[in-house]
Design a protein around this nucleic acid. Sequence first.
RNA 1: GUGGGCGUAGUGUAGUGGUUAACACGUCAGGUUGUGGCCCUGAAGAUCGUGGGUUCAAAUCCCAUCGCUCACCCCA
Length: 427
Amino acid sequence: MASSSFQAPRGTSDILPEDQPYWSYVWGTAASVAASFGYERIDTPIFEETALFSRGVGEETEVVEKQMYSFDDLGGDSITLKPDGTAPVCRAYIQRGMHNQPQPVRLFYQGPYFRYERPQAGRFRQFHQFGVEAIGDASAQVDAEVIELGWSWLASLGLTGLSLSINSIGDGVCRPGHLAKLVEYFSEREDGLCSDHKGRYRSNPLRVLDCKKAPCVSVSGGAPRSVDDLCDDCSDHWDELRRTLDLLVGEGALSGYEENARLVRGLDYYNRTVFEYEPAERKGQSTIGGGGRYDPLIEILGGPPTPGIGFAIGMERVLLNLKAQGVSVPGGPVIDIVCVHIGDAAHDRMLALASGLRATGRTVIVAPMGRGMRSQMRYANSKGARYALILGERDLENGVATLRSLKTDDDQTEVSLDPAVIAEASR
RNA sequence: GUGGGCGUAGUGUAGUGGUUAACACGUCAGGUUGUGGCCCUGAAGAUCGUGGGUUCAAAUCCCAUCGCUCACCCCA
């Protein structure tokens, strides 16, 4: 590996052919599970106006403050590679007038996201998410539907040992009061907080609850819980959510859930319901996906007041766990036939046969030029081909070729130089 | 942004001061006349991440730097 050669940028990776079966399995399953819930695919641009994120995700979030890939384009506009999927989808909802469709509008998406961070296991600068948004319905039943959808996908992939945590963080009515109580609680116990949060609990007390360091964990254990401070509306919503989830658990659609008062989310747009999916092994990243309700967001982005809820699940994290659990996925493409040719005339004739065979649906490779027959046969074998189709000068005169099976010993037949015949023989 | 570990052919490794840096897998070419897998032979492929220092002598010791990786933070 010469140091002068290029490398993929830090935190990015190539998805090599050997990995593609995993990706298409996971992608494909996501699309079909989402479709089975009546969700429709949407693709938004890779980049958006910077302000969409600073306003939508929140000026003071970690993501906006120090993780965005932003730049001025040649026209002088500030552009940002999307760090998040929800804000762009909401932008599209507003811009494309989706409030004129039957509500809620159910959408799903999959694609790359960008955050400038120090990479580690399951965390990259370019990563991929499968996400879902249900916009235009404030009921707790939609929360449960979204939660079930994500769970259903993860389970259908073959992942085991997953867990689901839920919480309610209140809304504009009750959250201010709760935050004030939290600040008061922490101010009385400031000495017990970890060094990171001693001075910072005032600006964002919720962060302390999320802190995994021993001091903060023990202090926040007794902290006021947001679910205890919910206003009537939020409280009803919370009760209704749990009732619906219990129903789903009873039906076996969910294996269970945990109420976690310490669960908060790092993006500002969340309110009421928040949730996370956690993998069996807590090595590396402890969350493979999460989401929540974001009722204020559409209005913040300039649309009519419209409730919404969604989740995003990290593809790389799903794949990490899939591989760790040894889940097997459908294999990649199989080469049906490698065309082995002896002599230029045979090669030229092979080209026509190969296209004819491809037209019948066969996957065909013509062996490399300039190699002996033995070498071409070895090539065919190492490509894992099912058959070698052998054509030499002698055969040209006789109008036949040899179709040799590479999966069974000494199994070959003569075939005429007709794609339909060869396709049939290589069934 | 903070800390730990690691950097030798495409991949995985050996080599801890001394002649042309080794092995396996992989790649390519051969093993007689038109046939793969196993086996055999051969070839290509590494300025030992980079720069500097110590030494008669450095992949090997020291320093710096870059990169990779793991963790913290945060999140998917």
